[in-house]
Design a protein around this nucleic acid. Structure first.
Length: 810
RNA sequence: GCCCGGAUGGUGGAAUUGGUAGACACAAGGGACUUAAAAUCCCUCAACCGCAAGGUUGUGCCGGUUCAAGUCCGGCUCCGGGUACCA
C-alpha cells in the first residue's frame, strides 16, 4: 500500500529548501567548514547518466551526514563544458556548441540535478565556458608561463587523417581515432607544454601522506613510473661519446650490441658509408609506421646495422651498433645497451639477427648450457672480470657504477615515465591560449588587464586539416598588436586542453563572487584544501595528477600555501546492469528520470546505494527501486503516529531491552557504516530496525526521531516530511546526529558456539561476560556436546569470551 | 607481458582483529485476506542423506599454517580494469 505521495512530498521540499535557502551557506561565517566536492560533469545532450547520479548521491550522503554531525558543509556544483566531448557532439548533430551547452546545462540543473535531492549550493554554480571562468583559466596559463612552468616546443602529436585534426592522447584508443577509427599517425607541430616532470618526485613523495585509497595511489605511482638505474657513457669507435640509461648496470659485461632509436640524431654522424642507404630506408619506414603497427602485439623485431661500433667502457670490447624501432626516442637517452642474456626484448632481437647472447647473472652461481629466453631473476655475477661472484642487482651493479664513476663514465640516475603535459589543442571549443607572437618581442603573454581573450563565435568551427585551430581562419582574432612594442603581431590560435579547466575549478567555487581574482586568499585559506573529494576511478591518473601538479606549481608561484589539493579522495565503483556494462550499443542504458518520476528520488537514491558496495559498484536490477519504495512506505507506517490517532507514539526511551538494543545498535552501526562509505549495509541496518518495530508493534517517539535522522542523508525529502509530522519546525538537518548508548547497544545474552575438534556441536544462549569456569559445566551437561566427548579425553580447550568454546579431544 | 582489483546460494550482496558462512534484499514456492486480481501480511528457501532427531559437504582450483581459514601463506585458473617494446 502506498503510504505517501513521493511526487508531492519531493516537490514540496525542493521548494521549501529553495525558499528557505537551506543549502546556501555564508562562507565567511561557517565556524566548522567542510568542503564536500564531487567531480563536476560535462553536460552532455543525453542528460545525466545513472552513473553520475550514483556518484553524486554517494557524495551527497557524506555532505548531509557531516551536516548532521554539525559541520558547515559546502557542496557546490558546476559544469565542465569545454572540450572534445561537447564539440564532437555538436559536430555530430550539426549544432553550435555555444548554443547547445547552455541548453544542456539548464536541462542538467533544472530537470535532473535538482530532482535528485542533492544539497547543492546553486548560488556558487560555475561553467567553465563562461568568460568569467575562463578568464582565470587563461590567467593560470599566463602565471605558469611567467614562472617558467610553461614552454613551447616542436614535437610529434597524434594526427587523425580521417578527421583531419590533431587528437588528444586520451582520444586515441588502441592507436585509432575514437571518432572515425582511422589509424592515428605522428605529425610534428609546435606545441605548448607544462613542466609536469618538474615535480615528478614530489608528486610521488606526497602520495605517502594523503588519505587516498592505495589503488588510486598505485595507479599514480605507475603513471609517474620512477625507475632507478645509471647513465653510462659509451664511445663510438673512432667517433663521439654517447649516453645510455639502464636499470641494470650489473649486466654491463653482458652487452653484445647497442641500439639507437631510428629518430636518434647521432645516427647521421656515425653510420658507415656502406650502411647509409639501408639505414635511411629503415628510418623512413619507421617514421611512416603508425603507432598501432609499431606497438602491435607479438610483432617481430626489426632493425638495421649502422656499420658503426661502440666501445664498452667496462672492458673496451668492440660491439656493433644497430638502429631499431623498439627503442623509443622519448625515454631515457634514445639509445640502449642491449643485454640479450637478461632482457627479453634484447633476446628476441638477438635471435632475429643472430647476435651473440652472453650470460652474466647466474642464479646460485649456475651457468646455463644455453638460454631459451632472457634470465631476469636474481643471481651472482659471472663473466664479469673483477666483479664475478657479487650478488648482481645490489652490490654488483653498485660496484660497477662506482668503478665507472671514478673515470667519469657513469652516474646513478633516476628516470621517470611521466612526460611534460602537452596542453595545445588545435580545436575551437576551448579557452584560447593567451599568447601573442611578435616578430620583435617573440612570444608575449597577454597582459592581465586584457584578459580574458574571448573565444570568438565562429559559424564554421570545423577543423580543416591545416594543422591549425579553426580560430586561425578568423583574421580579426588572429591579427593582434604586440602588448610590448605596439607593433603588428599574431595571436596563438590553439586553445588549451580541457584538463586545464578542470585542474583548478574547486579553487573557484568558494570565490565565485570575486571578479578581480581567481580565488580570494581568505576564502581559500578557510575552505581549502578540499576535505573530501569523491569521483570515478577513471580519473585516477589524468585529472587528479594534473590538479595535484597545478597545486604544486601555484604554490611555487606564490598563489597557494599548501601542497595537495584534496585531503581525502574516494573513488566510487561502477554500476553495471544485469551483470553487463551499460552502453548505448547494448541498448541497456537506463534513464534515471523515469525511476525518479515513478518511485521518487528518495527510493532511487536508496536503491542505488543498496545495490552493492559504493566503493565497488553494483548491479542494477529491475524491481529494486520499487522494492525500496515499499520499504520507505513500511518505514513511514512504522515511525509515524497513525492517522486515526489510535496508536500514539510513546514518549521517553523505549522500555524493553530488545527495542533499546535495536535502537542503539542501529545508531552505532549506521554511523560506522556511513563513515566508511558502506551505504548498502547502512540501509540493511535500517531495514532490520524497521523489521523489529513492525513485528513487535513498537511505537515510540525517541525511536522515530532517531530513525528519521538516520534516514535523512539517504532519503532527504521523506525524512524532512516525517520530521515535520513529528512536530519540528526546523529542517531535519539542523536536528543533529543521534548518539548511541554503548551499554544499550550490547545484548545481555549471547549465543555461544560450542565446538568439538573445530566443528560446531551446540549453541548455548548465555549471559555476556561469563568466564570459562562458569560456562564449562553447562557445556559438559549438554547432551549434544556430551555425545561427542564420550570415550575421549580433552587435550585442549580454547575459550573466546562471549563467542565460543572449542574442545579438542582425542 | 606487467600492475591493480575480483570470484561467496537461483540472483544482488553481508561477514571489525582468523572465531556461528550466507546479514539485508530480490526472485521463486506455499499460505492468509479477497468473488477475483492487485496491494499487504505470514511461512519456506546452500547442496546431499534422513520420516525425524541428526549427519556430511560447502566461500573459483591445488596445497600449507592453525584448536579454528571466505579471511593468513605458497602455487594455479578464470573474469574485470589500467598500462605497455619505458631499457
Amino acid at each position: 500500500m502506498v503510504k505517501y505521495d513521493h511526487g508531492a512530498v519531493e516537490a514540496k521540499w525542493r521548494k521549501v529548501w529553495e525558499e528557505r535557502g537551506t543549502d546556501r551557506l555564508d562562507l565567511d561565517k561557517a565556524p566548522k567548514p567542510f568542503y564536500n566536492l564531487m567531480m563536476f560533469p560535462y553536460p552532455s545532450a543525453e542528460g545525466l547518466h545513472v552513473g553520475n547520479v550514483f556518484a553524486f548521491v554517494g557524495s551527497d550522503i557524506q555532505g548531509r551526514f557531516h551536516r548532521l554531525l554539525g559541520y558547515d558543509v559546502f557542496e557546490p556544483m558546476g559544469f565542465d563544458a569545454f572540450g572534445m566531448h561537447s564539440e564532437n557532439f555538436a559536430l555530430k548533430t550539426g549544432r553550435h556548441p555555444a548554443a547547445m551547452v547552455p541548453q544542456n546545462i539548464r536541462n542538467f540543473r533544472e530537470n535532473q540535478l535538482k530532482k535528485v535531492g542533492l544539497m547543492l549550493d546553486w548560488s556558487r554554480e560555475l561553467d567553465t565556458t563562461s568568460p568569467e571562468y575562463y578568464h582565470w583559466t587563461q590567467w593560470m596559463f599566463v602565471t605558469l608561463y611567467k614562472n617558467g612552468f610553461a614552454y613551447r616546443k616542436k614535437a610529434p602529436v597524434n594526427w587523425c587523417p580521417g578527421c583531419q585534426t590533431v587528437l588528444a592522447a586520451e582520444q586515441v584508443i588502441d592507436g585509432e581515432c575514437e571518432r572515425c577509427s582511422a589509424v592515428v599517425v605522428k605529425k610534428d607541430l609546435e606545441q605548448w607544454y607544462f613542466r609536469t616532470t618538474a615535480f615528478a618526485q614530489e608528486l610521488l613523495d606526497c602520495l605517502d601522506h594523503i588519505d587516498w585509497s592505495e589503488r588510486t595511489k598505485t595507479a599514480q605511482r605507475n603513471w609517474i613510473g620512477r625507475s632507478q638505474g645509471a647513465e653510462v657513457t659509451f664511445k663510438i669507435d673512432g667517433g663521439p661519446d654517447f649516453k645510455i640509461f639502464t636499470t641494470r648496470p650489473d649486466t654491463l659485461f653482458g652487452v653484445t650490441y647497442m641500439v639507437f632509436s631510428p629518430e636518434h640524431p647521432l645516427l647521421d654522424l656515425i653510420a658507415a658509408p656502406e650502411c647509409r642507404r639501408a639505414l635511411a630506408e629503415y628510418r623512413e619506414s619507421a617514421a611512416r609506421l603508425s603507432e598501432v603497427d609499431r606497438q602491435a602485439e607479438g610483432r617481430e623485431k626489426t632493425g638495421v646495422f649502422t656499420g658503426a661500433y661502440a666501445l664498452n667502457p667496462v672492458n673496451q670490447e668492440k660491439i656493433p651498433v644497430w638502429a631499431a624501432d623498439y627503442v623509443l626516442m622519448g625515454y631515457g637517452t634514445g639509445a640502449i645497451m642491449a643485454v640479450p642474456g637478461h632482457d627479453q626484448r634484447d633476446f628476441d632481437f638477438a635471435a632475429e639477427f643472430n647476435l651473440p647472447v652472453r650470460q652474466v647473472v647466474a642464479p646460485g652461481g649456475k651457468v646455463f648450457d644455453r638460454l631459451d629466453e632472457a634470465y631476469s631473476g636474481e643471481g651472482l655475477l659471472v663473466n664479469s672480470a673483477g666483479f664475478n661472484g657479487l650478488p648482481a642487482r645490489e652490490e654488483g651493479g653498485a660496484a660497477i657504477v662506482r668503478r665507472l664513476a671514478e673515470q667519469g663514465l657513469a652516474e646513478p640516475r633516476v628516470n621517470y615515465r611521466l612526460r611534460d603535459w602537452c596542453v595545445s589543442r588545435q580545436r575551437y571549443w576551448g579557452p584560447p591560449i593567451p599568447i601573442i607572437y611578435c616578430e620583435k618581442c617573440g612570444a608575449v603573454p597577454v597582459p592581465e588587464k586584457d584578459l580574458p581573450v574571448l573565444l570568438p563565435y565562429l559559424d564554421d568551427y570545423r577543423p580543416d586539416g591545416s594543422g591549425f585551430s579553426p580560430l586561425r581562419r578568423d583574421e580579426s582574432f588572429y591579427r593582434a598588436v604586440c602588448p610590448e612594442c605596439g607593433g603588428p603581431a599574431t595571436r596563438e590560435t590553439d586553445v588549451s586542453d580541457n584538463f586545464l579547466c578542470s585542474a583548478w575549478y574547486f579553487y573557484r567555487y568558494p570565490s565565485t563572487d570575486f571578479s578581480d581574482r581567481p580565488f580570494d586568499p581568505a576564502r581559500t585559506k578557510k575552505w581549502l584544501p578540499v576535505d573530501l573529494y569523491v569521483g570515478g576511478h577513471e580519473n585516477a591518473v589524468l585529472h587528479l595528477l594534473y590538479s595535484r601538479w597545478l597545486c604544486k606549481a601555484l604554490r611555487r608561484c606564490g598563489c597557494l600555501d599548501f601542497d595537495e589539493p584534496y585531503k581525502k579522495f574516494v573513488a566510487h565503483g561502477m554500476i553495471v546492469r544485469d551483470g553487463a556494462k551499460m552502453s548505448k550499443s547494448r541498448g541497456n542504458v537506463l534513464n534515471p528520470d523515469e525511476y525518479i518520476q515513478e518511485f521518487g528520488a528518495d527510493a532511487f537514491r536508496m536503491y542505488l546505494m543498496f545495490m552493492g558496495a559504493y566503493l565497488e559498484g553494483g548491479d542494477f536490477r529491475e524491481g529494486g527501486v520499487k522494492a525500496m519504495k515499499s520499504f520507505l512506505d513500511r518505514l513511514w507506517t512504522a515511525v509515524l503516529p497513525d492517522e486515526s490517532g489510535a496508536e500514539a507514539l510513546a514518549d521517553g526511551e523505549p522500555e524493553d531491552a530488545e527495542t533499546r538494543y535495536w535502537l542503539h545498535s542501529t545508531i552505532k552501526n549506521v554511523t560506522h557504516d556511513l563513515e566508511r562509505f558502506s551505504y548498502n549495509t547502512a540501509v540493511a541496518r535500517l531495514m532490520e530496525l524497521i523489521n523489529h518495530l513492525t513485528r513487535h508493534r513498537v511505537r515510540n517517539r525517541v525511536v522515530s526521531e532517531a530513525v528519521v535522522r538516520l534516514l535523512a542523508p539517504l532519503a532527504p525529502h521523506v525524512a524532512e516530511e516525517m520530521w515535520e509530522i513529528l512536530g519540528h519546525r526546523e529542517t531535519v538537518f539542523a536536528g543533529g546526529w543521534p548518539v548511541h548508548d554503548e551499554e544499550a547497544a550490547r545484548r545481555s545474552t549471547v549465543e555461544y558456539v560450542i565446538q568439538v575438534n573445530g566443528k560446531v556441536r551446540a549453541r548455548l544462549e548465555l549471559a555476556v561476560g561469563l568466564d570459562e569456569s562458569e560456562i564449562e559445566p553447562r557445556v559438559m551437561d549438554n547432551p549434544a556436546v556430551a555425545k561427542w566427548l564420550e570415550g575421549k579425553s580433552i587435550v585442549k580447550k580454547i575459550y573466546v569470551p562471549d563467542k565460543l568454546l572449542n574442545l579438542v579431544v582425542r
